[in-house]
Amino acid sequence: MSKILLEARGLCVNYGAIQALAGFSLKLFENEIVSVIGANGAGKSTFMNALMGMVKISKGEIFLDSYPLSRHNYKIVRSGLSLVPEGRRVFSSLTVEENLKIGAFTRKDKTEIKNDYEWVFSLFPILQERLKQYAGTLSGGEQQMLAIARALMARPKILLLDEPSLGLAPIVIQGIFKELKRINEQGVSILLVEQNAKQALLLSHRAYVLQTGRLLKEGASKDLLEDSDIKSAYLGHGA
């Protein structure tokens, strides 16, 4: 872990008079898993949307491979960031296959795309069985797998996930997080935003704690798991 892959410096985002992000900075090294944890409304999703060019940044800079990142959504995907949005947002009236196909929209390398189908099927075999089914008919867990697979079809340098555990049963979450670890081991850096702090900290190498748009704490995930403030505020009793 040497090279900085993604760096956000002093990001500010305003929604009218409300400041959702107030100078948040973050680094992601190559092959790393970084999580951003915090309560509802802490600015986590805003941060993800700012990275993806979905909301306007009023101040601050973002660098990918030490080059400034485009502010145009579709160019950001081409440069190597791919987001699994909050609430999965699979295209429910398209089939599983079409969802994966649109995930590879920016790519022209046909044989490589074919290999990546095999890759995502090896991660989530259930998708291969459901290939011709409409995405809207899948269960919540299967939709989350599809959303992750769809994002991977863009062949991202960084996979961004916004609340992947939201609304899923614990056993399903376990399974999905296990696959995220595998994805990372295969060379994809991961940036994860989670309310489920424990799961996120167990998976990630480092973590940032966000509170009302500002950095509260950052450090190695295993240290944060033992941190008494974090324990009482985010991990809950007996977690």
């Binding site: 993806m52 979905m54 145009h72 959504n73 579709y74 995907v77 081409r78 791919s82 987001l83 949005p85 947002r89 295209f91 429910s92 009236s93 398209l94 079409e98 196909k101 649109i102 995930g103 929209f105 920016t106 769809r150 863009a154």
Partner: peptide, 24 residues
């Protein structure tokens, strides 16, 4: 076609179509 698929995806959810790298 590729753009035809993009249009069908956008009809379902235009914001997420943008996240797929489609120039909306």
């Amino acid at each position: 076609t590729r753009w035809g698929l993009a249009i069908r995806a956008a009809a379902c959810d235009i914001k997420t179509a943008g996240l797929m790298g489609v120039n909306v």
